[in-house]
Structures are given as structure tokens and as C-alpha cells.
């Protein structure tokens, strides 16, 4: 029982990170109907900006952890957003209106470019990071020889931050003029343009918002695992993409739900079966869900417009 609760906590933490990345996939898909294959690498960039940020904070002598964390998050969001915006400008906008496959390929190219770019600039070795936030709460004491359930402060921060960001983001999409603009473009870009919405800017913003959330995920991962390399975007991107599809691509709540599902599946599978096959488990669940519910948990079935 204690072991199960512990894995649940671990799974939720991991799932939060997948969820944050998955939102970027789902938003871009919702608005232009294409998968942004460079998004995983945007997340990787976020992690690197995070690690550089902490070094900068140390040089500047900012050692009070809450402030340093906040500043690094802001820095990562800003830089990573610029990358997100650039990816849209370079790999997507010039190809808008051409055949569907073209932007897909240019995005794959962008992904390979970003990986090699970081590899050249930062080196291919893994970057370690000293744990900054240590300690945690003891939730259940298993007694002598038993299993003690703990939740580290880092896990608490990740889960809380994700909940806050999700709530803020949902409000942004449902209540503000900006969110209305996003939803209008998602439904009918031509009509949105005709009532005065700047569609190009709206699409750029979808990339930027996705990148901002991925940056937060990147910084959190850096702190949580303590090691990153230029290749982390690939698998994390694939998992987050799976999460977005599992939850119903195009749905923001679905992306979050899918992220949590993937995180929990991985953690519980590793706990009771084998760690080596955790990715196999996650992707098998994806296949099963897609067979029985092709539009995902919260996706709307595609209705052919006449």
C-alpha cells in the first residue's frame, strides 16, 4: 500500500511534466492541424536555459532559492518563447498554404537542427546540476523494516506549479480576449480574419504559449532529475505527444489528463513489472486507447463538414 502511494506521487510528478509539454502539442494542433515536431526540442532548450540561468544566478550572488527559482523560470520562459516563435516563423509560416506534408518535414528538420545546435554549443555530455531543493515531507511511516512514503519539496513544487499554471492557462483561454481569438482561429480561420482577428499573430502566439509551458517543464526536470543532455527532448516530446493524443488532441484539459495518465502508467509499471519496459507500457496503452477510442479521452469525434 505504501509502495503504491509512493509510486502514485512519483507518477503524478512525472505526469505533470508530460502534461505541461503536451499542451504545446495540443494547442498547435488545434489551431493549424499539424504536429509541431520541434516542440520536444523546445522543451530541451528550456531545460538548458534553466541550467544556464541557475549558473547566472550563482554568479550574481542570488542565493535565496525562491527568488532564484522565480528569476530562472522567467528567464527560461522568455528565451524559450523566442525559440518557439522563431520555429513558427522559419518552419511553418513560409509553408502555410502549401501541401500538408511540407511543414511536417520542415518541423522535423527544425528538431534535428535544434538538437545539433545545442550539442555543438553545450557539448554532448550530460550536464549535471546540484540538487537545490532537498528534503521533503514524510507522509506515511512504515515502521521498522516497512516502507516510508515521502514527498520531496521538489515534487510538491512541481505539482503545485503545474496546477497553478493549468488553472491560469484555462482562464486565459476561456475568459480573455486572447483566448477567444485562439478559439475562433481554431474553429474557422477565414471567418476569424474576416471579423478582424490577426490570424498570423494568433498562430504565433499558440507556439509561444506552448513554448512557455514547455520551458517551465524543462526547468522543473532539470531540478528534479539533476541531469540533462541535448537529446532529452526526443523521448519527452514523444511521451508528451502520446499524452496529447491519449487525452484527445486539440483539447487542453485532455492534454493534462493524458500527461497524468502516461506518468502514472510509467510509474506503476516500473513499480510492479519492469523498469525497462515502461515505455513499451505507455505506448501500448496509447495503441489500445486509439483502437477503442480513436479521438482520445476528451477529443471530439471528427465530424465531416458538408
Amino acid at each position: 500500500m505504501e509502495y503504491f502511494v509512493q509510486q502514485l506521487i512519483n507518477g503524478l510528478t512525472l505526469g505533470s511534466i508530460y502534461g505541461l509539454i503536451a499542451i504545446g502539442y495540443t494547442m498547435v494542433y488545434g489551431i493549424i492541424g499539424m504536429i509541431n515536431f520541434a516542440h520536444g526540442d523546445i522543451y530541451m532548450i528550456g531545460a538548458f536555459v534553466g541550467i544556464i540561468g541557475f549558473i547566472v544566478m550563482a554568479i550574481l550572488g542570488i542565493t535565496w532559492i525562491p527568488l532564484a527559482l522565480l528569476l530562472v523560470l522567467v528567464m527560461a520562459i522568455v528565451f524559450t518563447s523566442v525559440y518557439g516563435w522563431t520555429v513558427e516563423r522559419i518552419a511553418y509560416r513560409p509553408l502555410r498554404g502549401s501541401q500538408r506534408l511540407a511543414p511536417l518535414i520542415s518541423a522535423l528538420g527544425m528538431s534535428i537542427f535544434l538538437q545539433n545546435y545545442v550539442q555543438l554549443l553545450q557539448g554532448a555530455r550530460v550536464k549535471p546540476m546540484q540538487p537545490m531543493i532537498s528534503g521533503g515531507l514524510q507522509l506515511m511511516d512504515g515502521g521498522v523494516g516497512g516502507f516510508t512514503v515521502g514527498m520531496s519539496y521538489m515534487q510538491i513544487i512541481i505539482i503545485l506549479l503545474t496546477v497553478v499554471l493549468m488553472a491560469a492557462f484555462t482562464l486565459l483561454i476561456t475568459k480573455t480576449a486572447l483566448g477567444r481569438m485562439q478559439r475562433a482561429c481554431e474553429q474557422d480561420k477565414l471567418m476569424a480574419a474576416l471579423v478582424g482577428v490577426n490570424v498570423d499573430r494568433t498562430i504565433s502566439l499558440a507556439f509561444v504559449m506552448g513554448a512557455a509551458l514547455a520551458a517551465v517543464a524543462g526547468v522543473m526536470v532539470t531540478l528534479y532529475y539533476g541531469v540533462i543532455d541535448f537529446y532529452i527532448g526526443f523521448l519527452a516530446g514523444l511521451k508528451a505527444f502520446t499524452a496529447a493524443v491519449l487525452g484527445g488532441i486539440g483539447s487542453i484539459a485532455g492534454a493534462m489528463l493524458g500527461g497524468l495518465a502516461i506518468g502514472l502508467i510509467e510509474a506503476l509499471w516500473s513499480a510492479y513489472f519492469s523498469v525497462e519496459y515502461k515505455d513499451v507500457a505507455a505506448f501500448s496503452i496509447l495503441i489500445l486507447v486509439l483502437i477503442f477510442r480513436p479521438s482520445g479521452f476528451l477529443g471530439k469525434p471528427e465530424i465531416e463538414k458538408v
Partner: peptide, 20 residues
């Protein structure tokens, strides 16, 4: 060509987007 998954009021607000 309404934004059919948005509310009636939201449809009218989107049209005033530039101003907002």
C-alpha cells in the same frame, strides 16, 4: 460560418477583437 463551439455572446465579442 459561426464559431459554433463558442457561445452566442463570445461570437459577438470576437468580432470586436481589434478594439479590445
Amino acid at each position: 460560418r459561426l464559431f459554433s463551439r463558442m457561445t452566442v455572446l463570445e461570437n459577438l465579442l470576437v468580432a470586436q477583437h481589434n478594439k479590445l
